[in-house]
Design a protein around this nucleic acid. Structure first.
Lengths: 207, 207
DNA sequence: TATAAGCAGACCGACAGCCTGTCGGTAAGA
DNA sequence: TCTTACCGACAGGCTGTCGGTCTGCTTATA
C-alpha cells in the first residue's frame, strides 16, 4: 500500500491531479479529498508536500504561468520573424493549450473560481507583458510603431484584452465582432500606426 | 428576545453588517456566524432572507453598484459642466466612498476576496462604462474627441485603469507616476486629442 | 564484503474544529 | 386564524493537524 517517491515527483503528481480536477469541477468545487482519492495518497501526505489547498493552487498557477512564459519567450526571441507577427504569436500563447479544451475556459470564469482566475491572470500578465513590451520597443526602434511608453502600451493592450475577451460578458456574435474591430482600431492608435493597417493581421488572433 | 421587522428592513440590516464585516475581515474570512452575531439574529433568519452566503454578496454588490451608478449618472447629466470634467468626475465615483477609508481597498485586493473583487468590478464596469461611453460620444459630436468607437474606448480606459491602479501590482511611487503618465498619454491617443492636452486635468484623478 | 544500526524523509489516517445550509417548530401582527 | 418573520439544534462536509509508522540510504563495525 505504501509507496514512497521522491518529493518532486509526488508534488507533480498532486499538481497533475489538481489541475485536472480544478479545471473540471472548479477550485471551490474540488475538495482536498478529491485530490487525495485521485492521487491515491493519504491526507497527511498532501499536507506534507503543500501547506494548504491554496498553496496547491499557487504552485499550479506558477507551473502554468512558467510554461506560457517559456513559449512566449521562445517566440519573442526568434528574430527572423517580423516583430508584428511575433507579437501576435505571443498573444496566442496566452490562450490555454488546446488539448485541454474549451471546458477549461468556461470553468475558469465561473464565479466559484474567482480566486483561480485572478491568480492565473496575474501570473500571466506579469510574465508576458514585459515580453510583449520588449517586442513593441523593438518595433518602435524599427520605426514601425510610435509610442513613448512601449511597456505600458503592452500592459494596456494585454490586460484589457484579457478582461474583454474573457466570456466574462455574455455577448452576441455581432457584439464580439464589434468589440474586436474596436480593439484593433484602438490598438492602432496606441501603437501609432495608420488606421486599418493592423486589421488584416490581427483579425486572425480571434478565432 | 424575538423582534419582528419588515423583510426589507432586516435585509438591509444584514447587508449593512455584511458590508462592514466583508470589508474588515474579507469575504472568505467572514463566517455567516459573524454576521448573525453582529445583527443579533438566528441562523434561520439569515437563511430566511437570503438563500446563501454568496447571495448576500450579490445583493451587497448590487447595492453598491447601484449607488455608484446613480452618482455617476447624476454627474453625467449635468450638462452645464464641460464634457471632459464630467468624465473625470464620473471616474472619481468609481473610487470607494472615502468614509469607509482605505482599509477597504486593501481588503478587497487580498486573494481571499477574489470573488468579492470580481463581482464588484463586474458590477461597476457594466454600470459605469455606458455612462462614460455616452460622455465620450458627446465629446466626439462636440468635436473635441475623435474615435469611431466611443463605447469601447470607455471600456478600454475604465477596465484597464481598474486593473492597473488597483494595488494589484505592488509598485514604487515612481513606477506609479510613470504608469499614470503613460495612461494619460495613451488616453490621449485613444480619444484622438493632442499629446499633452489632457495631462493637467487628468493628473488630479490620481491622488 | 557482509551485516547491523541509525536516521531523515516520505507517508498514514484518526480527529478536532469550523462552517454552511436545512428543517420542524414557534411567536406576532393583520 | 393565517401569513410572515423568526428561532436554534443538527447534519454533513471540509480543511488542516498530529503522533506515529515505514523505507531505504548512510555509516559503523567485524
Amino acid at each position: 500500500m505504501r509507496v514512497v517517491k521522491e518529493a518532486e515527483e509526488r508534488k507533480n503528481e498532486i499538481l497533475d491531479a489538481a489541475e485536472e480536477l480544478f479545471v473540471t469541477k472548479g477550485y471551490d468545487g474540488t475538495s482536498t479529498g478529491d485530490i487525495l482519492d485521485k492521487v491515491g495518497i493519504a491526507r497527511g501526505t498532501l499536507y506534507y508536500h503543500f501547506k494548504s489547498k491554496e498553496d496547491i493552487l499557487d504552485a499550479l498557477t506558477e507551473r502554468i504561468g512558467n510554461a506560457m512564459f517559456a513559449s512566449a519567450k521562445r517566440v519573442a526571441d526568434d528574430k527572423k520573424i517580423p516583430v508584428l507577427e511575433r507579437i501576435i504569436k505571443c498573444v496566442a500563447c496566452l490562450k490555454p493549450r488546446s488539448d485541454i479544451g474549451n471546458e477549461v475556459i468556461k470553468q475558469v470564469h465561473k464565479p466559484q473560481n474567482a480566486l483561480m482566475h485572478q491568480k492565473m491572470e496575474k501570473s500571466i500578465l506579469s510574465g508576458v507583458i514585459p515580453i510583449i513590451g520588449g517586442l513593441i520597443e523593438e518595433g518602435v526602434s524599427e520605426g514601425i510603431f510610435t509610442t513613448k511608453y512601449p511597456l505600458y502600451a503592452a500592459e494596456m493592450l494585454v490586460s484589457y484584452s484579457q478582461t474583454a475577451f474573457d466570456d466574462n460578458f455574455e455577448q452576441t456574435e455581432e457584439e464580439t465582432m464589434l468589440r474586436i474591430k474596436a480593439f484593433i482600431y484602438h490598438t492602432e492608435k496606441i501603437l501609432g500606426v495608420a488606421e486599418g493597417s493592423l486589421e488584416d493581421k490581427m483579425i486572425g488572433m480571434f478565432s
